[in-house]
Amino acid sequence: MSEPASEPILVVDALSGRIAGQQVIEDIAFEVPATGVTALLGRNGVGKTSTIKSILGLIERTGDVRLAGERIDALPTHRIVQRGVGYVPEDREVFGQLTVAENLRLAERDAAPRRELVERLFPDLVARRAQRAGTLSGGQQQMVSLARALVNENRLLLVDEPTKGLAPRIVDEVAVALAEAAQTVPILLVEQNLRVVRRLAERVVVLSGGRVVFTGTAVEFLDDEELIHRHLGVHDASEAA
């Protein structure tokens, strides 16, 4: 990595986002360090997805967003992505009418896309190259979605609830893939499954009511029942499970 580890890859400040003219997040500020996984947590509907979409310019936004020091808050989405941001959206958003191979081909931006890496991480997809993505299972679709982000060399990954609605075995597979990816690229991860958070994340940013209410290390947060209960309204699922 070219950036020194001390300098954060993403700095978000005073970020507000609107959907259909209505403010959904307000004055968000946090940083994503240049290595490891940062988890973005919060109750349903609190604005996690909206935060990610605001960073990418997928919804109307204002604020100061810097990628490795460069302002990106006025750029159109495709330019932000071209600067090395990989995106794995909530609910996969694979192109259902396109084949697996076409989904991946569409995502390839680099001159030398990392096809072997993707094939190694998701062997299931190799056999299904010619299958329409819409006919895949939820887990397989998630792999396509992840593969679309991992096939390029990125400076940052934005991953939105990659394990949502998946069977435990698939959750594991996704977590393994993310852990491997995190070796080389910093990740901002939205995740409801605290076991996955515990396994992957070093730091957490917690949202409530469209604002940041906690920033700190993952351990600090996950070991504090009271914090979890207050901000997520749940007991640590990993203890119960």
């Binding site: 609107r18 959907i19 259909a20 003219g21 919804i59 109307e60």
Partner: peptide, 9 residues
């Protein structure tokens, strides 16, 4: 009527 279209985007 500016804000009309964002919802569908």
């Amino acid at each position: 009527a500016e804000s009309e279209e964002v919802a569908d985007a």
